Simulated assay, not measured.
Amino acid sequence: MGALLWLLIPVGAGLIAAVWSSWALRNRKTGDVAELAGYARFRDAMEREHSVPDPASDPV
């Protein structure tokens, strides 16, 4: 009986590891959409030309 009890320890650890790995590798698509949309807005803002005139072309 003692040997079976000791055998339950690695079996239980294996089950816990399987549950943890399936939880860690789950598909997380819910938060990515908002983050990607924010990144697209940031990229668009950085690519836009600014309306600040060039001081070298300004007549003095």
Rank of each mutant, 00 (worst) to 15 (best):
R43P: 00
V19W: 12
W20L: 11
E47D: 10
A56H: 01
A3I: 13
T30P: 03
V33K: 08
W6T: 06
M46R: 11
P10F: 03
R28G: 01
E49H: 04
V19N: 06
R43M: 09
L7E: 06
K29G: 09
I9G: 05
L15S: 07
V52D: 03
S57I: 01
P59M: 00
A13N: 09
L25I: 06
R43D: 12
R41L: 15
D44C: 07
A17W: 14
D54H: 01
P55M: 00
H50R: 13
A40E: 08
L4W: 13
L5K: 11
G12F: 03
A37K: 04
T30E: 15
K29D: 13
W23H: 12
E47L: 14
R28N: 05
V33Y: 07
A3K: 13
F42H: 06
P53V: 02
A45Y: 04
T30V: 11
G38C: 03
A18Q: 10
L5C: 10
A37G: 02
T30C: 09
G14N: 05
P10H: 01
W6P: 00
R41N: 13
A56V: 01
L4S: 10
L7Q: 14
H50G: 11
W23K: 12
R48Q: 09
H50W: 10
E49K: 07
R28C: 04
V19C: 07
L15D: 07
E47S: 09
G38T: 04
W6K: 13
P59W: 01
G12P: 02
W20S: 07
A45P: 00
V19Y: 12
A34H: 05
N27H: 09
D32E: 14
P53L: 00
A17Y: 10
E35M: 12
L15G: 11
E35S: 08
H50K: 11
L36Y: 09
A17N: 08
G12C: 12
S22R: 12
G12L: 14
S51G: 07
A56I: 01
Y39M: 08
G38M: 03
V33W: 04
S57V: 01
S21A: 13
M1E: 10
S51Y: 09
R41E: 14
K29M: 15
S22Q: 15
V11L: 11
